[in-house]
Amino acid sequence: MAFAFAHARQPATPQPATPQPAALSDALPVPPAPEPSTSAAWLLMDYTTGQILAGENIDMRREPASITKVMTSYVIAAEMAAGKIKADDPVMMTENAWRQGGAGTDGSYSGFPVNQTAPLVQMEKGMVVQSGNDAAIALAEHVAGSEQAFAALMNAYAKRIGMRNSHFVNPHGLPAEGHYSTARDLALLGRALIRDFPEAYAYNKIKEFTVGPITQPNRNVLLWRDPSVDGIKTGHTSSAGYCLMASAKRGDQRLISVILGGSSEKQRASDSQALLNWGFRFHETHKLYDAGKQIAALKVWKGEGEQVALGVAQPLLVSLPRGRYQQLKPTMDVPKALVAPIAKGQEIGTVKVSLDGKVIAQRPLVALEAVEEGGFFARLWDEFWMWWESE
């Protein structure tokens, strides 16, 4: 535990477990993010905390193009985890999927033969690595019976993830009325896929995939340029522009970048690389409190015990500019008088962490133990002292 509170109701100075002198360069202000010059919307997110480190037009509705297939991957992984489909299911490349998304169309395709089956996991790799529209349609039909029914699943899972400004009408991302998302929502989607289904996410770092006589490369050129990059997905249509959602992990830190509406394949890659490099160079992630560990104690009136231990139910982490850790200020908002009984896990107050006067993270404080109501005379005595202190 990196931080400690001197008193339950007073802010305390952060106390690093192993203080290290800051590098001379860390004392300098963080330079502005390398803003993509031609993109309609973009952002950079810290994966661990979900904090947005930089961005512009992050809630603007945009066509996500083939980044849509990340949502398709999430639905497939979730349905598989629920036992509704299996990795070795035979998936038919129907005539509809072949005609709407196959080689005879303008978009990318996987090349699976029409009216033949392939194992679901192979069909999914054809969708993820080759960005096959035909594979996306075939998978949607297998999972839900039709593209329309599958889109309903996509929207239901998107809502569960927290994508508040997205709506999907197909599994592949070709232009369609009412099919949209945002940079923020797509970053949340990428974060959810990495967190919830790492095995499915791992398909995104496969550099090439072969179907029959055809071998196609992954369109994410960052996989070749930067060994820390392991995903996520490219997209392009004439109306959506050039899009790229990328993720990289260096040491214990992972970042997610989103570029929407770029001007070229080269531009979306170079802008994504610049954002990732900037994020890793100038930001770091710290765990401040472990889940279930005491960070403070608060007096309890009318209880069998005199105090209750407080902590957080989930780890509290923050992303911040490098060299600023010792400038973090933790505070707690707790009741002036806490009266038993108290249940284990009951929310008591809030712990907040600020930098430069701005709250950058907060979590509910919960009781780490139950405190039962005291006996009659104990409660009567505490009633007197509560009255006395209130005067």
Rank of each mutant, 00 (worst) to 15 (best):
E147I: 15
N133K: 12
G145W: 14
A118W: 09
I137V: 14
V121K: 10
N115M: 12
E147L: 10
T117Q: 03
G126C: 06
V121G: 00
A144Q: 10
L139W: 00
K125H: 03
N115A: 07
L120H: 00
Q130A: 10
A118S: 14
L139M: 02
A118N: 04
N115D: 13
Q130W: 08
A152E: 15
S146M: 13
A152Q: 15
V121T: 08
V128N: 03
E147G: 15
E141H: 10
V128P: 05
E141Q: 12
Q148H: 14
G145A: 12
A151K: 13
G145F: 12
V121E: 05
T117A: 07
Q148G: 13
T117H: 05
Q116I: 02
K125N: 03
Q116D: 07
D134W: 11
A151P: 14
M123Q: 06
L153P: 04
M127F: 09
M123L: 01
L139H: 03
F150H: 11
P119D: 05
F150D: 15
L120T: 03
A138K: 04
N115W: 08
N133P: 09
L120P: 00
E124I: 00
N115G: 03
A152Y: 13
A118C: 06
L153F: 04
A144Y: 10
G132S: 00
Q116L: 08
N115K: 12
A149E: 15
F150L: 12
F150N: 15
V128G: 00
V129K: 13
V143M: 04
L153C: 09
H142D: 07
A136G: 09
A135R: 07
S146Y: 13
D134T: 12
S146E: 14
A151Y: 07
Q148V: 15
